[in-house]
Computed example of a mutant assay.
Amino acid sequence: MKWLNKFTALNFVLLFALAFSVAGCGTSLSNLSPIQPVHNIAKAKMEQSKNPNEEVVVPAVPAESLAKPVLDKYGMETVGFWIGKARDANMEVLTYIFAFDEYAHAEDEWNNFLSEWQETQNQIELGTGEDRKMVDVIMMSDHPQLFEVQSRQKILTKTVDGITVSIAYWRRPDLDRKYNRGNAFSPFYETEALHQGDKTDVFYVKITNNRSENIIFDVKKCQIIDQGENIYHGLNYKDLDERLLYMARATGLYVKNGMAIARRILIEKRMPVVEKQVGAHRTGIPPGKSAEGFLPFVQTKYNALELKVILPIEKAPPPGAAQRYQTIEFEFPFTHDRGIRVAQPSPRRY
């Protein structure tokens, strides 16, 4: 009998420990972001060593003999990558994610690195046959002070033709804590009962124009594309206003105050008019200036895994030139985790 009691007690302790560990996992998942930048190199290498898979490319450094001296000079290392197929790796664009020590955001050093890296990149891309690699370079940093509204997630930064774009994802619980409070609904307010297509995924974006001409940015042309070619469009102020009007619980003063907040925090509303046309004004960023704010999208599907956030920016031609506007697509790689999405806390007011 004593043996049986001890056995029962042991089972009870083990059951309690299991329940505690499961609860702990749930808590940790709920604190993570369902959308995160790229893939972690170290984790991918470990997984591939256990289960080699030709669908996954785990690059160390592109054309190491050419690239490593430049990376070492600026104290940079490869911290992430965009997944591709091994058989196509040499002929497709590989997006490499570089970072300074401890994920510091060093804007001057980044620009200096890019100036020297361009020649190296040209040599890599001019290679022939199996040695040819198209290379796309992004910086990852952990520097909340880069933004006026400080981010809790890592930041991706890309510079092309004198335009620098930085982007970070915002979890809904963090948005609720900051904006869904007092006598106002968050502009991104949602309930659990809403359909996936009526919910949002929200990013914070900063665009700096170091060109000598204006640039044009239209949030409605932005989109997220997943691995199944599903497209999730960017939402503007009007879209957010209509979302709240459709919600039975979102009425009156709370909605009015929430949309007043939207006017202050959306990147769409924080850009000046840089071009006036008949019947329409185009917003963007003048030379030497920056604009930043939140950019919402239709929420991604639960089965999404690989995400490409695409932000098209139009470059104005020089004054008096006969050239047309040219569009640069800033593409940022993110990943989505269904388990973390499901584990997110319920919407809450503060």
Rank of each mutant, 00 (worst) to 15 (best):
Q48S: 09
K68C: 01
E292G: 04
F330K: 08
G320C: 04
G279S: 08
P347G: 05
I167T: 08
N236F: 07
V274H: 05
Q299K: 10
A262Y: 03
L235N: 00
A343Y: 04
I97A: 03
Q145C: 11
N214L: 06
F16I: 14
F185G: 03
F81E: 01
A260S: 15
D174L: 09
V298H: 02
I155C: 02
N5C: 07
P62G: 09
F7Y: 12
F217G: 00
R324F: 11
I83V: 11
G75I: 07
E77T: 14
I225G: 05
N236Q: 14
H281V: 11
A291E: 02
P296M: 06
H195F: 13
A17R: 04
H105R: 08
D337G: 00
K50M: 15
I267N: 03
L71A: 02
I83K: 12
A86Q: 14
L311E: 04
Q223P: 01
E47S: 07
G80H: 00
K256M: 09
Y254H: 10
G284Y: 02
Y254D: 06
E229L: 11
M259C: 07
K276R: 15
S186L: 13
W117C: 02
F332S: 01
H143S: 15
V79A: 04
K315A: 07
T157K: 05
I124D: 05
I265Y: 07
A63T: 01
V205W: 00
N230Q: 10
I35W: 00
K315Q: 11
Y169S: 09
E116A: 06
Q299C: 08
V202Y: 03
S212F: 12
F217A: 07
A42W: 10
L175G: 04
I265G: 00
I138M: 05
E125R: 05
L266G: 05
Y74S: 08
G127E: 15
P272W: 00
E125H: 06
W110R: 06
T191A: 12
V61L: 09
K199E: 02
E92N: 14
G129C: 10
I231K: 13
V274S: 05
D131W: 08
L71V: 02
S166I: 03
R152H: 13
N210G: 06
M1C: 11
E125T: 03
N209T: 14
L245P: 10
E102D: 12
S33Q: 04
K276N: 13
F16D: 11
L126S: 15
E116W: 01
S166V: 01
T300V: 11
R349G: 10
R243A: 11
S166F: 03
K6G: 10
A321L: 06
Q299T: 01
Q145E: 15
G234E: 01
G182T: 12
H195I: 09
I207A: 03
L126Y: 10
S33V: 00
K289F: 09
V61M: 09
F147A: 04
I340N: 00
I225W: 06
V219N: 00
T120E: 09
P312E: 03
A250N: 08
K220E: 12
V57C: 09
G26C: 08
V149D: 14
K221C: 04
G84W: 03
G24F: 06
T283N: 15
M259L: 13
R338M: 15
